[in-house]
Design a protein around this nucleic acid. Structure first.
Lengths: 380, 380
DNA sequence: GAAACAATTGTATGCGCTTACATCTGCTTT
DNA sequence: AAAGCAGATGTAAGCGCATACAATTGTTTC
């Protein structure tokens, strides 16, 4: 690296023009004569000039960066200090149950949304700044979010990753797009990107009733503070009512989106001989936990019990049996979030946007029994 | 959102102090009297002030942002224009083989490294900017990378994500940390973070020979331009030589880290009756492809053929049989990269760093046969 | 209680760029 | 050939903050 980074002034001098021309040649090349543009391009090349993003942002009043804020509370535990140290050898271990470090709840969901955001920001010539929002206390979190807010044009916030007060604070500074289903009391001044949780779950329930004549349900719910979880339950109830089943009669078990908790609960059901015909879960993780418990108890799926999930994560597909689920367009959620943010930035005073992405009900072995692998996908 | 974002000047006026004091109260609070600090804090709170990252960076000559550049060439195909459109219903489909959108080569590897970077930047109070580097042509890629370079203090670059010329260009502007094994001709002025590819593969081969008396190998190699792939092959050869087997006699098949190609190649081997005792693959994806082909041909693993991989991705663990592999500390790779970058920034003139992280040889069913799930992990 | 000094605070400058406005070119028009 | 004009270029004023240096206040010493 040479002594000092070149600036517009250096380029201007090298090319024998003014700094304004240099800036223009970069910003809107058509506004500068081809000859001088050539001159400037050469100078830039010769000096290896790269404009300072900070200065650009400061002068232009926009950064071209969109922030993505997602939290990950489960992750905190394994976060010891990391120090660099050369280790000289490869260890060998017999591996009965090796737990690598990537087993995180919602991991796939977050990863996919993130990837969608990356994709879309890239497509639009923007940059993406990612933040885990890993702080324990609210003060730290607000501070963290504030720092980020100072560096971006807008902030995409994943559901449940910041408390309301922090959100309130952020909204004062930058536009916010929330990735979550709408809270019951409608929006509070930010844009929303969500999936059809309600409709998806309703359709699923109706299918179970109409096709499989299920009239004996149990519902495995997620955490109370998740708007998505809430909307799925609402859809569940709607489905039941539309077929004249009273939702009040259906037992609800809360498993907080957790594999383990769902498994435990199910085992408990088994011991108490309280197994319904169909176990509808608010997400796939829990459905997997339920399946594990049932399989371990020698209960057949779906002959004895039908199990369904929600999300469409990869495990729902690799599990045996594969799990009937409502698949979310996770990556498109990210893309939609970025697109929405861009619209918001172009149009600061527009009404709050509320984007709803469709879901797909995937009927698989955990509800349908054997499915011919030959038959092509069919829309109903 | 109120009319205009407040600045230091607003805060200073509100608190009745000078802007210098405001800045100091934020930067080094101990250098300002508690009373005035209180005054300023209140004003900040009242105005909802958040410092402008651009201005801070410009004045302080550092951004506090680290860039992560990773490429993803396979992804380009599914990248159609994305437009927002409200769809009103949930679709239903029977799902014989549903392919969701997250099946990408190296996906898990990248995800984990990314996560490690996030973690470590967060721990150090920095921000992370992510870039897919998805451009097709080199010109665009250099431009993309240049834009990023203008916004960050340093750039972490994943192996094979940018051509050498672009790298050369970047190095002139910002410190670069490369996540990859060393190229054969030693470094070129940037720092390196890598895993013990060579040692890991050597150990694996020695194990196969010593414990399972394998003397008949085939090697499934990755792409030629991958330094990691290269080093793994070197380790493979070392292992053979150390047990008096001539590497020249071992056939090499190139499958470019691809599941499909590896599968095809293996099927071909089967048809030609050229199956060796052990198939050593340069990564897990290929090992999975090999297993698929063998299983479909009713060849038993490991009784008939031993298969091994490299990386330790999740599929290697969920596959049946689970695959013996060399597990990389993927997340720690990311953390190490960030740590190295921080050191580099603190010490611009130090010699190039070269961090090597240890790998773990995981012996599983694809080479060992039945492994008791009860037995705890053992270090040898 | 005044001098001497340390702790705080204020003033002014510059970080590198964008952009409104002024100036200058090279043409076209009559 | 002079005037008029659009296009190209230059000039200068910030953008919001950090910080060196100057000015001020508070504290200690004898």
């Amino acid at each position: 690296m040479s002594s000092k980074k070149p600036t517009v002034y250096d380029v201007a001098k090298e090319a024998g023009v003014s700094i304004a021309s240099v800036s223009r040649a970069l910003r809107k090349p058509e506004s500068v004569r081809p000859a001088t543009r050539e001159l400037i391009d050469r100078a830039i090349e010769r000096l290896g000039y790269v404009p300072s993003g900070s200065a650009q942002s400061l002068a232009a009043r926009r950064t071209g960066v969109i922030g993505l804020f997602m939290s990950n509370l489960d992750e905190l535990d394994d976060l010891q200090d990391f120090t660099l140290s050369s280790v000289d050898d490869a260890r060998v271990k017999i591996d009965p149950t090796h737990h690598t470090d990537y087993h995180r709840n919602d991991s796939l969901y977050y990863d996919q949304v993130l990837r969608g955001c990356e994709l879309e920001t890239w497509r639009r010539g923007l940059s993406l700044m990612v933040n885990l929002g890993l702080d324990r206390n609210e003060k730290g979190l607000t501070q963290l979010a504030g720092e980020m807010a100072g560096k971006v044009d807008g902030l995409i916030v994943m559901a449940r990753s910041v408390p309301d007060s922090t959100l309130e604070f952020l909204k004062r500074r930058v536009p916010v797009v929330m990735v979550a289903d709408a809270p019951s009391d409608n929006e509070a001044g930010y844009d929303l990107v969500r999936v059809s949780n309600r409709k998806g779950m309703r359709k699923l329930v109706q299918h179970l009733i109409d096709t499989h004549h299920v009239d004996d349900f149990a519902y495995i719910a997620g955490p109370d503070d998740s708007p998505d979880n809430h909307k799925r339950y609402v859809g569940f109830c709607e489905g039941l009512r539309s077929r004249d089943i009273n939702p009040e009669t259906v037992p609800i078990y809360r498993a907080g989106f957790s594999f383990t908790v769902a498994r435990t609960i199910t085992l408990d059901m088994v011991t108490r001989h309280k197994i319904p015909r169909a176990l509808v879960c608010a997400n796939d993780q829990m459905a997997l936990g339920v399946c594990k418990a049932l399989t371990d108890s020698n209960i057949r799926i779906p002959q004895d019990v039908i199990v369904t999930g929600f999300d469409g994560i990869k495990e729902s597909e690799t599990n045996a049996p594969r799990i009937t689920t409502v698949s979310q367009p996770m990556r498109n959620l990210g893309r939609a979030a970025v697109s929405t943010m861009v619209q918001r930035l172009e149009n600061p005073d527009a009404e709050p946007y509320a984007i709803e992405l469709p879901v797909t009900l995937l009927l698989r072995e955990s509800s349908e029994g054997e499915i011919s692998k030959k038959r092509p996908a069919t829309n109903i």
